[in-house]
Every structure is written in structure tokens, then in C-alpha cells.
Amino acid sequence: MSKYLLNKFLYTVDRDPALVERYREEPAATVAAWEAEHAPRLLNCVTAEATTWLAFDDAERSALATHDYPALFALGAHPFLTLTLFIAMFERDHPEPLAFQREYAVRLAHHTLPYPDIAT
């Protein structure tokens, strides 16, 4: 398990509007393509610098591919990164102001302190 890689995925997808839309419409394909193309690259480095050890495990891949943000939170994904990406993807499906944010809070309400460790 790599919290770094989970957070890198959330961070990089959230900053690319086309990738946000692709992830919304084709999550499993987007996760697979991102993992093949972006996971080996070090964050903010030239493409020539890469690593071979970073990959999602099955639980991470499944949670990402099904938009399961409560599972991502339980796996240690940073809640701010998760929330901002999922707001970009799903807020438009909720007509009431802050409706998605309330749903997010309800779906994570079963977590109690101490929360899962988000340190990478």
C-alpha cells in the first residue's frame, strides 16, 4: 500500500479538468491508464526520471475504480484531496448547495478519532 501514490493520483487528477471528466466517466480505465503512465514518474520531475516500485494494491485500485471515497479515507488518502476531487466530479449531481459535501460527511461519519493516518 502506498498512501503517497493514492494522494499523487488524487492530486494530479484533480488538477486536470479533462482527466477529472475521464475519471468520472471511465474510472477503472482512467485508474489503469494513470497507473501505467503517471505512477512511475516522480512528482514534479522530468519524464526521464521514473521509478519501478510504485503501484496500487488491489484495495487501492478497487476503491479508486469504484469512486469509493470512504474506502480511500480508510486506506489513508488525504481527506482534503479526496473531497476536492469528488466535489469536482459529483457536486453537479446534487442540486442543493453543499449537498455533496454533506453526503461526503455522512458517508465518513462512522469514523471516529483517531482517524486513519494520512502521513505519507
Rank of each mutant, 00 (worst) to 15 (best):
L81H: 05
A119T: 14
L54P: 00
D93R: 11
E35Y: 02
A109L: 07
M89Q: 05
E103M: 05
R102V: 05
T84V: 03
F90G: 00
E91Q: 13
T66D: 07
A119D: 13
P95K: 08
S2A: 05
R22S: 15
T30P: 05
D57H: 04
F86V: 02
M1D: 10
T120C: 03
E103F: 02
V13C: 03
P95C: 12
R61V: 06
L85Y: 03
F56Q: 03
A28T: 10
L75F: 08
I87L: 11
F86G: 01
R92N: 08
P17K: 06
P17C: 05
T12G: 02
P27V: 03
L54Q: 12
E21F: 00
P79I: 11
W53I: 06
L98F: 11
L72G: 02
D16M: 00
A32M: 07
D16N: 13
L81C: 01
P116V: 06
M1S: 14
F90I: 01
A28I: 08
Y104N: 02
I118L: 06
D68M: 03
M1W: 09
T82I: 15
F80C: 02
F100P: 01
F9W: 13
L108N: 15
T84W: 05
A65G: 14
F9C: 02
E26S: 10
E91R: 15
A77S: 10
P70N: 07
A65I: 03
E25A: 12
Y69M: 13
T82P: 02
R15H: 11
D93L: 12
R102L: 05
T52Q: 11
D117Q: 09
A99N: 01
H78W: 04
S2Y: 09
V46S: 13
A119F: 08
L19I: 08
G76C: 08
L43Q: 09
H38F: 13
H38P: 00
H78L: 08
R61L: 10
A48G: 10
E91Y: 00
H67Y: 07
S2E: 12
L43T: 08
L81S: 09
A88N: 13
E35I: 04
H67I: 05
E49V: 15
P114C: 12
K8Q: 10
Y115T: 01
L81P: 00
T112M: 02
R24D: 06
L85D: 05
L6M: 15
Y104D: 01
S62V: 07
P79A: 13
L98H: 14
D14W: 04
V20N: 06
D14V: 03
S2N: 12
Y115D: 09
L108H: 11
L19F: 08
F56R: 01
H94Y: 15
A18E: 14
D58P: 00
W53G: 05
A55K: 14
R92D: 13
Y4K: 06
D16E: 13
P27T: 02
E37N: 10
V31I: 09
Y104K: 01
A99F: 01
A29P: 04
R15S: 11
